[in-house]
Design a binder for these strands. Structure first.
Length: 291
DNA sequence: CACTTGACCTGTCCGC
DNA sequence: TGCGGACAGGTCAAGT
């Protein structure tokens, strides 16, 4: 999925476009149903106004005037794409191929607003979900109870970062970085990028990481995700923002999906391996493998 | 408990 | 150009 920077980019774009709009209709793919929605859509979704768009970890929260919120996880291939009334009826961006083509075979949910604008939830692999729950109950959900701190929170320190890893003492540092209960929002791209930046091999065990290395990982993880948000996220294949546009962070990636190319720091050839069950990119010279 | 693996789906790419 | 297998931004439920 989209990782923290991609979800944050979607959040920013959606906030600009849908806050203040009122939902007038909803439709969804009938085969699997409105994904995971446990309660009555008619009473708490239709007629409700959007009052805020928030993010926690990789989960988006769209708060409604009905005191309910839509919680959305994009998982690997989810998209939330807004199409304005002008886009639909010809006065907007007639050459935007993605928007022109919507809805398409991956569209699972469509929300219609009172002015005729639309919000599409597309998800090719169908791993993503959307739930409608009372806003006040969000903090009590199992996910929110267990998820780790936001890494870009200005109050989140290097010391706190290191301490979070005490819960995963005997696993690899890559697996721990991907564990959302340790620190929120890091996924496969930014784990590899941060490990390269900190010169830490992904197969190193958490217990072997020094204080200086934890400090470097903290700094690198924050820097790489901050840069990615500035660049509108990473687009390998499916990810797009709320306008249906791709992000450009991949142009700035140092190791992710750059196997066979030179390490920008030392010139060694970047390798792709498998760690924690995930494709993993390293510089074999900068990142020393454990024995 | 901590940790690893497979499953969830569909599409694409790569080697034969 | 066809076909099988591996793989893809994430998380769970199982298993050890």
């Amino acid at each position: 999925m989209p990782e923290l920077p991609e979800v944050e980019t979607v959040r920013i774009g959606l906030a600009d476009r849908i806050i203040g709009r009122t939902i007038s209709a909803e439709s969804h793919d009938t085969e699997k149903g409105f994904p995971n929605t446990p309660i009555d859509v008619a009473n708490f979704l239709i007629g409700a106004k959007i009052i805020a768009v928030r993010r926690r970890a990789k989960v988006l929260m769209i708060d409604l005037s009905s005191q309910y919120s839509l919680l959305i996880h994009l998982k690997m291939t989810g998209q939330l794409v807004f199409v304005s009334a002008d886009d639909r009826f010809g006065a907007g961006h007639p050459n935007d191929s993605l928007i022109e083509a919507l809805p398409d075979s991956s569209t699972r949910v469509t929300l219609t607003f009172e002015d005729g604008s639309l919000l599409f939830f597309n998800d090719q692999r169908k791993f993503g979900w959307m739930k409608l729950i009372p806003t006040a109950e969000i903090p009590d959900t199992p996910f929110m109870r267990k998820v780790g701190p936001e890494p870009l929170d200005p109050h989140f320190t290097a010391v706190a970062f290191k301490q979070r890893f005490a819960r995963r003492p005997r696993t690899t540092i890559k697996a721990a970085l991907l564990d959302q209960s340790v620190v929120a929002g890091i996924g496969n791209i930014y784990a590899d990028e941060a490990l390269w930046g900190a010169k830490v091999h992904p197969s190193r065990l958490v217990g072997s990481i020094t204080d200086d290395e934890f400090t470097a990982l903290y700094t690198e993880a924050r820097a790489v995700m901050t840069l990615a948000i500035e660049k509108g996220g990473s687009s390998n294949r499916n990810y797009v923002n709320a306008e249906g546009k791709k992000g450009s962070y991949m142009d700035f990636a140092r190791v992710f999906r750059r196997e066979g190319q030179e390490c920008p720091r030392c010139g060694a050839i970047i390798e792709k391996t498998r760690v924690a069950g995930r494709g993993t990119h390293i510089c074999p010279h900068c990142q020393v493998a454990p024995e």
